[in-house]
Design a protein around this nucleic acid. Sequence first.
RNA 1: GGCCCCAUCGUCUAGCCUGGUCUAGGACGCUAGAUUCUCAUUCUAGAAACACGGGUUCGAAUCCCGUUGGGGCUACCA
Length: 487
Amino acid sequence: MSPSKVRVRFAPSPTGMLHVGNARSALFNYLFARKYKGKFILRIEDTDIERSEVLYIDEIYHDLKWLGLDWDEGPDIGGENGPYRQSERRDIYKTYLKKLQTNDLAYTCYCSAEELEIRRKDAIQNGQAPRYDNRCRHLTDEQIKKFEQEGRKPVIRFKMPEENIVVKDLIRGDVEFDHQLIGDFVIFKSDGGPSFHFAVVVDDIEMKISHVIRGEDHLPNTPRHIALFHAFGCELPLFAHMSMTMGPDGTRLSKRHGATSVNQYRELGYLPDAFSNFLALLGWSPGDDREILTRDELIDLFSIEGMTKSSAIFGIDKLNWMNGMYIRQAPIDKLTRLAIPYLQKGGYYPNGVNESEFVWISKVVDAVRGYLNCLSEIPQHAALFMNEEVEIEEASVEFIRSDEGQKVLQLFQSKIESMDTVDIDAFKSVLKDIQGELDVKGKQLYMPLRIALTGKKEGLELHVAVALLEKKKILQRIQTAQARPLI
RNA sequence: GGCCCCAUCGUCUAGCCUGGUCUAGGACGCUAGAUUCUCAUUCUAGAAACACGGGUUCGAAUCCCGUUGGGGCUACCA
């Protein structure tokens, strides 16, 4: 690979939120560019004026930045080969169209969508390839005049060459396509804009793209693109069609599978490094057993050879595990900053967090991080610290209503009352004293206190929880528990 | 329907190109145990796969063919 010559692009269309499958595509292009010290280019394919929305362009920027995929050329930062929005490149497409027309490689087609549809159905019914029959290739002047008078809005089609086309794919090897199965396709739509196929090729030429790394769904389109490259007399980029991302049931990942867009995962509190680490392992492998990989390692290890041919299912279980690993390993200050918005969503700290609160919150976050799959789960785990009272589950009431439990609570209360602060050591020694004085230990000792203070039978180690609770709250909860009637 | 791609534990994958070292390795999840006041974490152990059928070969997860299954494309959507 000749470095510095590598130029790859991610070319989403702004017709919706950034899909995780597209994000993976962006990630692989990014890793490839960074690995070979090349350029990663962002191009917005908004030729579908009906469905494209500016709002989604901003979402794409946001999501890519969140994932840490910074681009070297793009609509927002410019570059030598701009503009980078297809809607702003109309003149360029017109110029390229002229080249085709000069060489008699394009023609006007007046077939209506309805006519096309009828012929398509016929072809399928007769067991034939549903391709355009090229019938407008040789229209007489009279026919053209007649169609124009009928007010038909024409399209412009490209004359497909009469020879088979072999796609040399870096992942799949040589794939041959029968030219007879591909009809002359539309390069300019009746709205006057370029079609996807045409715009892609023109842009890849103009932007000097060296490698086209995209989803496998584009493989059958590639012969059309290759024909266009040839028609323009341009060298081909290298193609790599990567496997697709599927839902848990093996069908195309869609809304019925749950969250499918990057912003949803961001909002659920997945960490960008964890998310991209997970995405990288979908359809790619470093070749050894490593799984938790830093961005630099990913860049260093990435190769097209390591890419899988078969499609991969987006499995949330492994993502959760991986995100949990990142959450447990993250610097606590950083994690706390990320966690605070979720606490606020849970109703805590509506007016922000001051410095001393931050310190305390970071201790809480540190205490509960072992339980988290993602940050949005944090309020439910932090509630026992944040709330004034705890709700005692019915199933646990017996622990605080038993005679033994009541004794433990009472003794604990009297010992705590005389103390200034309750830290881990103090709590442990208090428990030791109670154990000696009442001759209780294990569950009999811990459970009444656990239930009184946290409301639940399970949860973090009691001394960790107690050390984070104010003395006032501790006493209050003990009192409430003592007064709790048995139902 | 036609064309194209793909096929290793439930899932992500290593191995396949350059057949023997594969009684097929790792990870998630699952099960059990250890630790612990409990749950989670952590650690240890376990169950779990070469889709099927032919062929080539002394020998096939690895090469070839077929079948089946899955996916994609077949748009004036990208």
